[in-house]
């Protein structure tokens, strides 16, 4: 199966989900394409990915959400979990994964970027035409 994942958020809850779905799907032999746009495009910038620690939840759940972030960081330190972009890198090692980053947010912000500004898991900098092409390519589409 070919799976397209659209991600528009840069919070840790979405990014961990992105890594988990990607790695889980690839381990079962599926192909994955990731299309990042809006603040998710920024999450893939070198120098920022490691610093992302915000976990989006309702305020009543903030203590539980804080526990997830602490557990995530502790498990990474202990070698028993991996950062969200490492999960994507692992998925690329065992299967077919392509990562596309939409440049629209950078254009709106007046920021010039090239592929070298991004984590090495990123394959191409693209615009909306690529997303439509990927919609035609995929069997299932997921939005995060």
């Amino acid at each position: 199966m070919r799976i397209l994942i659209l991600i528009t958020s840069s919070t840790l809850d979405r990014l961990i989900t992105l890594g988990t779905i990607t790695l889980g799907a690839v381990s079962m032999g599926h192909e994955v394409a990731i299309y990042a746009t809006q603040s998710a495009s920024f999450a893939f910038l070198r120098g920022y990915a490691d610093k992302i620690g915000g976990y989006n939840s309702d305020s009543v759940l903030s203590e539980l959400a804080g526990g997830v972030v602490r557990g995530y960081n502790d498990a990474i330190k202990g070698g028993r979990f991996y950062r969200w972009y490492e999960m994507i890198r692992q998925a690329k090692e065992i299967g077919n994964v392509r990562v596309y980053v939409c440049t629209q947010p950078f254009e709106l912000a007046g920021i010039k970027v090239g592929l070298g500004d991004f984590l090495d898991v990123v394959d191409e900098l693209v615009m909306i035409g690529k997303y439509v092409e990927l919609l035609e390519w995929c069997d299932k589409s997921v939005s995060l």
């Binding site: 988990t20 790695l23 889980g24 381990s27 498990a75 028993r80 979990f81 692992q90 065992i94």
Partner: peptide, 8 residues
């Protein structure tokens, strides 16, 4: 190990 690693 947490999900998805046991499966992976």
């Amino acid at each position: 190990y947490a999900c998805p690693y046991p499966q992976v």
